[in-house]
């Protein structure tokens, strides 16, 4: 409960709890960036006034319970299959707004085929892709996006490309597909980045609202627990290291998407 404090009459509310977020306390670890991005998605849904016609597709991974937090209709996909499920939903419900929320294991490993083909078909869906370079839920194993040299529970000596290949830049790959109209990478690691992330997510939803094609936003994030860093230190580490390998950029934006008022 909030402290019972009288708000002076000459004060206005500048931040309120988003309507599209449930009151549930999340299961995420302290400082987990999922909480920030969930909130941004909810704020965007509120601002666009689309809560009543939005259908979310939940991933497998730490965000598996996202439907407990974002207050819209939801389905729970099998690991990696969210874009296929979203395709099925959107094709039979073209007037609804359909989004997937996926992590790096879900989107960049087991679901690589589904995301690339959904993008290439130009499915009118929105994808929010959280990249924290590790498998959080299963205990900190290597993700496709794990940096070289990064120690995880399945790369005890650090990721070695001779053994485990190279980190994958998924947004750059998705931007190659003809059906994608908007592909961006942002970082929810500081205030400016969080604001830019929200703007990108809004643009990706708007692209769908206007029926333009596939839109995705990759969000660089942290995993304080499995990285073994406190949440603030994890953000600084991510800015320096993830940011160096995964440039923040808009990899694809069509003129129609560019013209959308965000």
């Amino acid at each position: 409960m909030s402290q019972a404090v009288a708000v002076p009459e000459d004060m206005e509310q500048v931040y309120a709890y988003p309507r599209s977020l449930t009151q549930a306390n999340s299961h995420y670890c302290p400082g987990c960036v999922h909480g920030i991005v969930h909130r941004l998605v909810a704020e965007v849904i509120d601002e666009l006034g689309i809560r009543e016609k939005t259908i979310g597709v939940a991933p497998v991974g730490c965000a598996v319970l996202v439907y407990n937090y974002i207050n819209t209709d939801f389905v729970e996909a099998a690991h990696g299959r969210a874009p296929a499920m979203a395709t099925g939903i959107k094709r039979v419900s073209p007037d609804k707004i359909v989004f997937t929320y996926q992590g790096d294991g879900d989107l960049a490993a087991i679901g690589t085929a589904e995301i690339i083909h959904a993008a290439n078909r130009g499915e009118r869906i929105t994808t929010v892709f959280i990249n924290n370079a590790i498998y959080g839920m299963t205990g900190g194993q290597m993700a496709p996006t794990t940096l070289e040299g990064m120690i995880t529970t399945s790369t005890p000596g650090g990721r070695d490309h001779l053994l485990a290949g190279y980190p994958m830049r998924m947004s750059e790959i998705l931007a190659q597909t003809a059906g994608a109209v908007y592909v961006a990478r942002e970082a929810a690691l500081d205030l400016a980045g969080i604001r830019r992330t929200k703007r990108a997510i809004k643009r990706a939803f708007l692209a769908q609202i206007h029926g333009l094609g596939f839109a995705s936003v990759e969000v660089l994030a942290t995993c304080p627990t499995n990285w073994g860093l406190d949440p603030w230190a994890a953000m600084q580490w991510a800015k320096e290291n993830l940011g160096a390998f995964y440039p923040l950029d808009t990899f694809k934006i069509t003129d129609e998407v560019k013209a959308l008022p965000v």
């Binding site: 000459d10 206005e12 931040y15 920030i36």
Partner: peptide, 24 residues
Amino acid sequence: IGCASCAMICPDVVFTVYRRRRET
């Protein structure tokens, strides 16, 4: 100062933020 930075970075939506109106 009612800047809402705390609310922007909070992963758990802990904060409600008020700011004095421009005129005051």
